[in-house]
Structures are given as C-alpha cells and as structure tokens.
Amino acid sequence: MSVNYSPVLWNKQKKLYDLILWIGILFMAVTFIIFQVLFHKDITLQTLIIRTTAIIAFFLLHIILIIGPLCRIDKRFLPLLYNRRHLGVSMFLVALIHGGMAIVQFHTLGDTNPIASIFTANSNYLAISDFPFQVLGFLALIILFLMAITSHDFWLKNLSPAIWKGLHMCVYLAYTLIVIHVATGALQYEDNPIYWTLLVLGVITITGLHLYTGIIETRKLSLPHTLEKEGYYKVCSLEEIDDQCGKSVFINGENIAIFKYDGNVSAVHNVCKHQMGPIGEGKIIDGCITCPWHGYQYLPDNGQSPPPFNEKLKTYRTSVLDGSIWVHPLPLEEGSFIEPTKIPQS
C-alpha cells in the first residue's frame, strides 16, 4: 500500500523474523564449521567457506519453497510468508559468497577470464556425470540475483505485477538448476549414499507438498456452480462462511472472493493488488477486507483501499436467497461501489 516507499518496512514482527533467521544462519554455520574442524582438520579455509555457504543457501532455499504450500495446508504458517522476501535476499547473499568464493578459488589467477572459464574449462556439455556443473550454479545465482534486486515493492509496481511474478516464479527454475548443480558436482566426488538420499528427500518434500496443495486447490475450485438464476450463481449456504470471513470461488473463469460481515455480503476480485495474494482467505478487520499475505486492505463494498492508498479491485454483485449466497460473475470496473446485500434477519 504504497503511499511513500521506505527502504525496508521493519516492524516488531519483521525484526523478530530477521533476528531468528540470522541466528539460524549463524547457528548452522557454526555447527557446520565446528564439525568440519573436528572431523576434517586438513580442510582449507576456502573450502570451508565454499561448503558452509553452499549448505546454508541450499537449506534456506528448501525452506523458502515449502513455506507457500505449508501456508495453504495450515494458515497459521502465514507469518512465515509475510516476510519471505527477507529470507530470499538472505539466501541470495549467502549463495553469493559461495559462488564468489568458488570463482575466486577455481577460476582466478589463470590464463582465461574467470567468468569465461566457468563456461569453458570443463566443456563436456553432452556428458551427464561429467557435466560442467558450475555453469548451472552460475545461472541459478543470476536468477537469485535478479530476484533479490527486484524484491522491493517499488519493482513490483514498476516492472508490472505480471513481469515481477514471472521473474519470481523463476525460483523454481533456480531450484532445479541447483539440484542438478549438486548432483553433477559434489555428488560425483563424494561417494557416501547419504548425499543422494538427502538430495532426493529434499526434492520429494518440495514437489510432494506442491502437488498435494495443488490437487486440493483445484478440487476446491472445480466445485460445480451449476445453479444459475438470471446470471447469478449459487455459491454456498450462509452458514458456510464465518462472520467477518471470506470464501474463494471460481465461476466462469472469474476468481471471486465473497465476504460476510456485519450482516452484509459483498464480493471482490480474489487477487490482491500487492503480490496476488488470495484475498478470500483474508478477514475483515476494522471494516476492511485484509489480505492474508501482507495485510493490504480494501473496502468490501467498492474494492478500494481506504485513503490515502489507491489500490482498487473489481467488484461483483451478490444476492442472498433462501439462506444461500449467490454471486454474479460479471465483474464491474475496479473500485465500483455495489450496495452490500443485506442478510435477511430470520
């Protein structure tokens, strides 16, 4: 809800989040380094840095990727999502140390430009086990870099939400690249099967959670809304929505969030203007629909953010008949006022 940009919007919760995050990162670094020095006293400082940062970045990436599905499964995880971009930027910074150190260690002070060397030193691009794995890490790092530098809301608005979202969906591409980076790199050297086990477990966890929530989601959305009257579709019974709460429905290609509040029913577009959060999973707070992801607010009757903000959502006409909520899936212009439907008192 940009009135003016500040560098980072820190509040008590975000500070706590970042504090725990960096304690976690340091904790992981310290345990990893202590074990290395204990069990592998011959390790060099460079290898220690390369490996510590690699493990931390890869671990953080797993956490970043499971937060989305976890929130779908249990809304109580939502605070993790709220500040996920700090997690992402932190992960990038750690990965940057890994990649930078690897380039310095393996490619500088040689007869070729270090960046060119990443691509040309090992040029077995057709091989599997011999594949030049560092190239994959490099490409992944570029993706993470682009995501990190555009993580501020300024970019969400000025690159346009579609481009921004597309760019940030590339995190899945980056993850895939890194999995192959590890499989064709470190795992071609190490021979303890535990590494393959861990890598595969990670992949299974992430794809499994995404598939699971994806299936649940599509099942929810594909509920038939066959009952139609004068363009209105039946959504559900009144009791099905708690007071001050919402419900998401998908009718004739329209993604709609319906809210029940103070004896009224209203409907708005189910996609938040901020980062496309699911408005319907939000709540009415202080008379405003509040997005579950980062708390953007909209008035339920006209879909507008209260002044001084200026985000606007499309609105939909609603009706209540025989104890059921009905909605007309033809949207009105963003920010159009629609008189809320009064719930008849019985």
Binding site: P7, T150, W155
Partner: peptide, 24 residues
C-alpha cells in the same frame, strides 16, 4: 516522473533500488 510515490524517499531506498535500475 516514473513513480511519483518515490518523492521524498530516503537515500537508503534509492541505494536499494539502484542495482535494479542498472539492470532494468
């Protein structure tokens, strides 16, 4: 001009978005 909401923003904000300006 591109984004009038940036008027009056801090130096740190301007530094934060500079890598993006250089790339985009």
């Amino acid at each position: 001009i591109v984004d009038k909401d940036t008027v009056g923003s801090t130096l740190l904000f301007k530094i934060l978005i500079t890598p993006g300006i250089i790339i985009f």
